[in-house]
Design a protein around this nucleic acid. Structure first.
Lengths: 216, 216, 216, 216
DNA sequence: GATGAATGAGATTTCATTCAT
DNA sequence: AATGAATGAAATCTCATTCAT
């Protein structure tokens, strides 16, 4: 919420009513994408938001731009959670972050398929913070030392997979799965036979993850 | 392949060329969905299969039916792998199965989003076999005793999430993630704080997983 | 410019800043229509003029009205050139006028498709002046006697055709074509086999020339 | 007509009904573009043709492709007329061609704005034939020797301008204008003061004449 | 049985015009 | 008086599905 206002402010100040419509549209998009997936029509979103289709296109010049704005909101909130978690004194920041960000994502499921499929710098920022959380967790011996930050990215994809499958019916199922993931991350857990994904590969993954609407 | 022929035979015998067209179409669908996702057009699939679109619609009355057939193929192969794994004498069946089924799914990525979204009895069969594998693994103390079979379903959703994100660029990344999951499943790993998903909930999850094309 | 102010004054006096906005909008419209054709959006014109779109619509109630105002400007200037040419003592007025008006139109290409498509009295005035120029040219034996004033209207359509086709790339090509037209108009030139267009027909032509934007 | 069948045959044989629909669509396009200009909607064209919009798009993948097909028809017929005219033994081929091609164009007014705005080789062919007609006409002293083939291109633009302006109301007015043009082209006519357009410039003119629909 | 032409609902996007601020 | 946000009709184009050949 505050993050949304922030990103809006970065671009230019909106008139009072326009800003309200922008928020209504984003909220409607979250709801409609949640219910129908990213293939939902923009007309439906405008209808739910209670504005004309032209208003939607005045705020967001393409459907992709609208999805991007949603993704930015989630990424912004995620980054904020990571920043908060970095301040944890006992090395629990990583676990807290994974829990908090998953809980947030559980409420913004609609555009999760596009979450990491963005080239803007927010993804980089998020990954750097997560890497810092990992270092800290290792320092306090809460996480095994052979775990890499690419493993954490996989873990977040993994949580997305669980969220997408279970969310409408079992909105807390992801917590149990996160337990399992963290159990596997503890120093006591057994070795991981395979090599971790290289950072370069992960970069490519994030660049090509899912095609945009226009690309179809 | 054989499984596909089997299920087809259950319904009615196909003429030789018709059966061949069916196989061509399924193979083309795998390829096209892999390359373009489930939004690929049926026309493209018919083109790749080298048949007319009318022929496609004679074999599969709707696009959904075609996807369903693919899912059945995967489920059939998955069940076969589970059956094979059950015969493992040392309790390693579960691990072998997770590895083998993931490797198979990695080669049929296109329709994974719909994999578990089916109400036919094959899903039940698969789940029963997996439950049996879990019991056996516990018996040999390879898997912690508080792990439920619903946890395994979540783990498979999780692997799907990793597969969807990484497959085009890092086709083996899922192996590392599976390492992490199994490490968390070992008896040595720490407790899982949250309660497991109930079987009833998982049933609902599987029933409502992803909307069909027609539902849009 | 002066002509525009004149016609404006006929209707009602404008406040100083309003008159300035009017001029800015007309200039912007000339530029934008020249660059993009009559299909250019009014939003773009307002942007180039540096005013809001609401201001544009306060000055010109429809897009058509704006185009009409431009046409009036051109017609006004054309009439002025015809008046100047009438004063030529040697019967060269017609040739001078054709050259001068074409040169002027070459710089206002954007709305030429609508130039003669107007029912206001300015067109009549222009045609009467041109008829007078023709009479004078015949009197001095510079133009063949079987040439009618409707032939001159056709010649002006003809020049428009050349202008529209060549202007962006060969801005002076129309001069060569005008040479050819005048050569054909000289008394020495051969007979014109076909009958001239009747004035009544030309009236209809001018009335139905090109559909307005609204008519679409 | 025959030319249309020819160009169609060059690409691939169409089924009987499909070929008929193609002709219906082209005829409807001529009619609708004639009545409403190139901004007419494709939906309207399909309606007039009595087919669904999807059928139109099956035959012509974009609106531009449809317009292009019309232009090809006219160019094809124009080339044929030029070929016929070349056989005239007395140097009258050029005049005959100008008359015949204008008469044909008068019946296909709708897409004239795009007539010469094409990069395919048909335009080149037409221009070469016209140049040959010019040489022949000069040889028989029917046309002044300082006339270039670019002058003829301008003359054709000029006729287009007259056609566009007068066609709906005075469908024969262009004949009178053609008289005037030819009178100016005769050897007896006076000199043309300005230099002719260079061939290179005309090439550019033909390349940039009018923007395509998509380019807007 | 096979084919692919035909269909038309529906998607995204543009833009002239209106009206609240 | 000026602004520009809002509107929604209309345009182009796609695609799952049907049906004549």
């Amino acid at each position: 919420m505050t993050s949304a206002t922030n990103t809006a402010n970065l671009e230019r100040p909106l008139r009072k009513d326009a800003a309200q419509h922008r928020q209504q549209l984003l909220a409607a998009a979250v709801q409609v994408f949640d219910e129908q997936g990213l293939d939902a029509s923009v007309t439906e979103i405008a209808r739910v938001a209670g504005v004309g289709i032209g208003t939607l296109y005045r705020r967001f010049p393409t459907k992709d731009a609208l999805i991007d704005a949603l993704v930015r909101e989630i990424l912004g909130a995620t980054i904020q959670m990571a920043r908060d978690a970095v301040r944890a004194p006992d090395g629990t920041g990583l676990e807290r972050f994974l829990e908090a960000s998953s809980a947030y994502q559980a409420e913004h499921a609609g555009c999760l398929p596009r979450l990491w499929n963005t080239d803007h710098e927010m993804v980089k920022t998020a990954r750097q913070l997560i890497a810092k959380l990992l270092v800290d967790a290792k320092k306090h011996d809460r996480i095994r030392h052979d775990l890499t930050s690419t493993d954490l990215s996989l873990a977040m994809f993994s949580l997305l997979g669980v969220l997408e499958a279970t969310l409408p019916v079992a909105p807390d199922a992801w917590r149990r799965h996160l337990d399992l993931l963290i159990a596997g991350m503890r120093p006591a857990a057994l070795n991981l036979p395979h090599r971790a994904l290289s950072t370069a590969s992960l970069d490519k993954v994030l660049a090509t993850h899912i095609p945009t609407v226009a690309a179809r």
